[in-house]
Design a binder for these strands. Structure first.
Length: 98
DNA sequence: CTACTGACTAATG
DNA sequence: ACATTAGCCAGTA
């Protein structure tokens, strides 16, 4: 039986991230659950080739952004119409999936 | 094979 | 709210 190739998992992650509607955000854990991998695997996929997907719509479980892209992500989210509050996103309001 | 690192998460003090 | 610890998973040396 074929196991999931690394590229296959990456595609699943990208697909889930692209599914996030504008003005909404998701978390590494949520995406990981959808594709059936751990949150760290999601982060690695985005860090590797997230340039082709709206990676900025993916934040941490507490609504904060990751360090290496923190400022950039908050800026992009604000530009998408996401209410950012003190460098933090309200997952209760813009969290996805509901 | 072992050790280290990292765009993570949850629990604890 | 913040710092620390433990758990987890994949890539790289």
């Amino acid at each position: 039986m074929e196991r999931q190739d690394p590229a296959d998992v990456d595609e699943a992650v990208y697909d889930a991230v692209e599914d996030i509607p504008s003005g909404r955000v998701s978390t590494y854990g949520a995406i990981g659950r959808l594709v059936g991998v751990g949150p760290r695997r999601v982060a690695r996929a985005l860090a590797q080739g997230g340039g082709a997907v709206p990676w900025y719509r993916v934040v941490r479980a507490d609504g904060t952004a990751a360090e290496p892209v923190r400022a950039r992500q908050l800026e992009l989210l604000a530009g998408e119409g996401v209410p950012v509050r003190n460098g933090r996103v309200d997952l209760h309001t813009v969290g996805w999936p509901d």
